[in-house]
Amino acid sequence: MTRNGAPRDAPVRHLRAFLVLAEELHFGRTAARLFITQPALSQQIRTLERDLGVRLLDRSTRRVELTRSGRELLPAVREAVRAADRLREEAGARSGAGSLVIGSFENIALMEPVPAVIDTFRAALPEVGVRMRRAAFDTATVLLEGEVDVAFLFLPVPDGIQYLTLAEGARCAAISAADPLARREIISLADLRDRPHLGWSPRVPRVYREHWSADPRPDGGPVRYTDHGVVDYAGSLLAIAMGEGIQLPPAAARRLYPRAGVSYLDVKDLTPWSMGLAWLPAKRDQPQVKALREAARRVVAEREGPGGPDTGGVVRPFRAG
């Protein structure tokens, strides 16, 4: 606040931090998404509250919630950040520095090697403005619709998208903690034959839906789906806890999405997940996209050697669905 009690202008980075925190309601996850330390995030939020003259958050050792003022100011903050982004994009276009809009599947930006790739890119092109756009199971659709320049996402992707594989790992089953299976340490897909999988939104590409539902199952049997139409994993957790359906996410969900009422079980015959950096062929050689691809290749090579996974040349005609 100024001496006369009027709100002081707040830096855009503080407004952006508040928006991410309003999504996550968790300081640790928010700090990781913003690639800053948790103390630095706390300081930014305290400074923002002081500048605006209102308390935005109720904090406790157990949870974070928006205050009434925080909820009411959220649309204005969101519009202010959008306006700042538009201004930076216009300025970048005139200066020649440019900008890069990166789609990020939910919390995938917290998983290695994504932070290392972004750090490498920023070190190479510090003058380029980077904006992260969080998406969900429809990240490939968001990329195809041109809302982002590139995207970090889980594979597979529909035809017409190029990608570089960055990492892979084990998956698990997310089920209700009240399910009798939750008492077991490891299960098979056959054990899940009577549990429906949460139904997907039509915006989620078919190739993605089938892979992440393990449909068909190893015995050739089809998967039964609910009518939920989920588009994001975080939003599906309540339905899982209520025993309405299951999901088969990366095992990292244990760490990134711990929820009361949800149990994560190892599945011995579940195919692994793969993570990739994806782009459209038309944008492949744009300077910022090319630089991010090169940063990703460098990080992959450092971690896995010259024989690391790379399907960046694979392009197939796009078919809807």
Rank of each mutant, 00 (worst) to 15 (best):
V81W: 00
E79R: 07
R88C: 09
G103K: 00
A80S: 06
E79F: 05
L100D: 00
S95G: 09
G96K: 02
E106I: 04
R94A: 12
L100C: 02
A80Y: 01
A91R: 15
G96M: 03
S99L: 04
R78E: 10
D85Q: 12
A93R: 07
A97T: 07
R88W: 09
L110K: 07
A84P: 04
F105G: 01
R86V: 13
E112V: 11
L110D: 11
L100N: 01
V81Y: 01
G92C: 02
S104I: 14
V101Q: 08
A80R: 03
E106W: 02
R94S: 13
R78Y: 09
R88K: 13
A83G: 06
M111G: 12
L87K: 14
G96I: 03
L87E: 15
E90G: 08
S99Y: 05
A83S: 08
M111H: 15
A91C: 10
R82M: 07
A80D: 04
R78V: 04
I108E: 06
E106D: 06
E90T: 13
I102L: 09
E89M: 11
R88Y: 07
S104T: 15
V81Q: 00
G103W: 00
A93T: 06
A109E: 12
R86T: 13
V101F: 06
R82S: 10
M111Y: 15
A84Y: 04
S95E: 05
A109H: 12
A83I: 06
V81S: 01
R86Y: 09
R86Q: 14
A109F: 12
A80I: 02
G98C: 01
I108L: 15
S99P: 04
A97W: 03
G96V: 03
L110Q: 13
G96R: 02
R82E: 14
F105C: 08
L87F: 13
R94H: 10
I102N: 03
S95I: 05
R94N: 07
V101K: 11
G98H: 00
E89W: 08
I102T: 04
R94K: 13
E89R: 12
V81N: 01
G98Q: 01
A84F: 05
E112K: 10
L110G: 05
I108R: 03
A83C: 05
R78H: 11
N107R: 15
A109V: 15
R88G: 10
R94Y: 07
A109N: 13
L100P: 00
M111W: 15
A93N: 06
R82T: 11
A83W: 05
G96F: 02
R82P: 05
E112M: 09
F105P: 03
A91I: 13
R82K: 08
A84E: 06
E90C: 11
M111S: 15
S104H: 09
M111T: 15
I102Y: 03
G103D: 02
A83N: 07
A84V: 05
V81D: 00
V101T: 14
G92I: 01
L110H: 08
G98W: 00
I102F: 05
D85E: 14
E89I: 10
I108N: 06
V81L: 03
V101D: 08
V81G: 00
G98V: 01
E79V: 05
G103L: 02
G103V: 03
S104W: 07
